[in-house]
């Protein structure tokens, strides 16, 4: 972000200034071109095809797919799940990053690996583990059911599966950042008499604010988009336990491709919107971010 202040870094740059810490104009253009083409090919093209499909029958059909009651119920469920899952993972992510980045202790690599584990666990397994834990064949499931607590094929199961899948996002975003920042700032604050909480609140938090925001956005996006794990624990009861991604699958399987892509585009739009929000904040508070990240 510090880059905003220097005019020397863009591909379009005055030829009189070639700083020692930047590349030749030709190199910059080439690199930019490669990166942009790669992104266009890998990410933008699939995105465009989603919108192209969604709008292929006109805007009215598009809108109708979104305000239909089953779609609305899927939107509500997805938001509910996200609102519970994301804050829990934020608290966990900050705590884990604090422990891992600010201290040296035995078994740290093991702990980091365990935190990464949900990434590599197939979503199919992420759902399966809760089926094994709370299913009718388990010890816990029937006991909870007898006491009126429904976990599997109800909202709590979907929340648990979502938390599992999005578990590492915040922590993973913060750990390298906090490691890179080291402990100098905190040590200075502590030596000046700040309490632990004050140090965290006024020194660490501002430093990691933007990394934290990235993490939350990613966690949020994934929580809304998770399919595999949720499909195992949801029971797919239309209008009751179908999240947006499941609703998309249902529509697709009903040969209702346009509606499926319309709902999919909603998720994509939602992601673009939050990311736009982030960009707008960076633009508005650019100086503050620069100050926070420049040592």
């Amino acid at each position: 972000m510090a880059a905003d202040t220097s005019p020397s870094r863009g591909p379009i740059v005055s030829p009189s200034f070639t700083g020692a810490t930047t590349e030749h104009k030709a190199t910059r253009w080439t690199l930019t071109l490669i990166a942009v083409s790669f992104l266009l090919l890998v990410i933008v093209l699939p995105l465009v095809s989603v919108f192209a499909e969604a709008l292929s029958k006109g805007f009215a059909t598009y809108l109708a797919a979104l305000i239909e009651p089953d779609a609305m119920s899927a939107i509500r469920l997805t938001l509910t799940v996200t609102i519970i899952a994301v804050p829990m993972n934020i608290v966990f992510g900050v705590a884990a990053a604090w422990a891992i980045a600010k201290f040296e202790f035995k078994g740290k690599a093991l702990l980091t690996t365990l935190i990464d584990l949900p990434f590599s666990v197939s979503p199919v397994i992420s759902g399966l583990v809760y089926v094994l834990l709370f299913g009718a064949g388990s010890v816990l499931g029937p006991w909870l059911k007898a006491h009126g607590v429904e976990i599997l094929f109800a909202v709590p199961g979907i929340v648990l599966a979502t938390i599992f899948v999005t578990f590492p996002f915040v922590a993973r975003e913060l750990i390298p950042l906090m490691q890179e920042q080291g402990t100098t700032d905190e040590e200075a604050a502590l030596s000046l008499g700040a309490s632990g909480w004050q140090t965290f609140r006024f020194v660490t938090l501002p430093n990691i604010k933007w990394g934290l925001l990235y993490g939350v956005l990613l966690c949020n996006a994934r929580a809304m988009g998770e399919f595999g794990a949720v499909s195992v624990v949801s029971g797919r009861i239309r209008g009751a336990t179908t999240t947006l991604p499941l609703h998309i699958e249902i529509l697709y399987n009903e040969y209702n491709v346009v509606a499926a892509f319309a709902v999919a585009s909603l998720l994509a739009l939602l992601a673009l919107l939050t990311l736009g929000l982030k960009a707008a904040m960076e633009w508005r508070y650019g100086a503050e971010i620069a100050a926070a990240t420049r040592h």
Binding site: F134, G135, A136, G137, L152, G235
Partner: peptide, 8 residues
């Protein structure tokens, strides 16, 4: 399988 696992 979902019914076996407890889907109502």
């Amino acid at each position: 399988r979902a019914v076996i696992d407890g889907l109502d």
